[in-house]
């Protein structure tokens, strides 16, 4: 009985320590799922060649359709902008102003070559009736699915 209470204390301690380590690394952003355009600019030469994910907002007015499913657009975090050439088929949700995560590599020519285009929507779910009340500008500002600071 005392032994099992000792186990209880040890288990809680291990869980708490593990949780704290991961929480701290999360808050320090030691673990990164995608790079923002600012991160990419800061990385300099390290950004070239490696397969990375770039996340941000599709800059309104920057989308150009090429032949087939190929697309050109700019990804922005409001501070920096990266030009993206995408060959992946865009999801139906893709539009100007929406959050995207693209997977690929930064090229020496200064654009990001992506083969995988993912759309990141925000946490808002609106019925069409509410949707009409929300103007497009506000929707673009509220793409919280991707950190835009």
């Amino acid at each position: 009985m005392n032994r099992s209470r000792l186990f209880l204390i040890i288990a809680i301690a291990v869980a708490a320590i593990g949780f704290t380590i991961i929480a701290a690394s999360g808050i320090n952003k030691n673990l990164v799922y995608y790079w923002t355009p600012s991160d990419l600019h800061k990385a300099g030469d390290k950004a070239y060649g490696a397969t990375i994910r770039l996340g941000g907002q599709v800059l309104p007015g920057s989308v150009h359709h090429q032949s087939g499913s190929a697309l050109d657009f700019d990804v922005t975090d409001k501070h920096q902008t990266v030009h993206v050439k995408s060959t992946g088929i865009p999801p139906q949700m893709f539009r100007e102003g929406i959050g995207v995560v693209v997977e690929g590599t930064m090229t020496r020519e200064g654009f990001f070559q992506s083969e995988r285009l993912m759309v990141s929507h925000n946490n808002e779910y609106r019925s069409p009736k509410d949707g009409q009340a929300v103007d497009a500008k506000k929707l673009i500002e509220s793409t919280k699915g991707v950190d835009v600071k």
Binding site: P90, Q92, M93, F94, R95, E96, I98
Partner: peptide, 8 residues
């Protein structure tokens, strides 16, 4: 393409 899902 207008950013909405049709069907599905």
């Amino acid at each position: 393409m207008n950013g909405t899902i049709t069907g599905g």
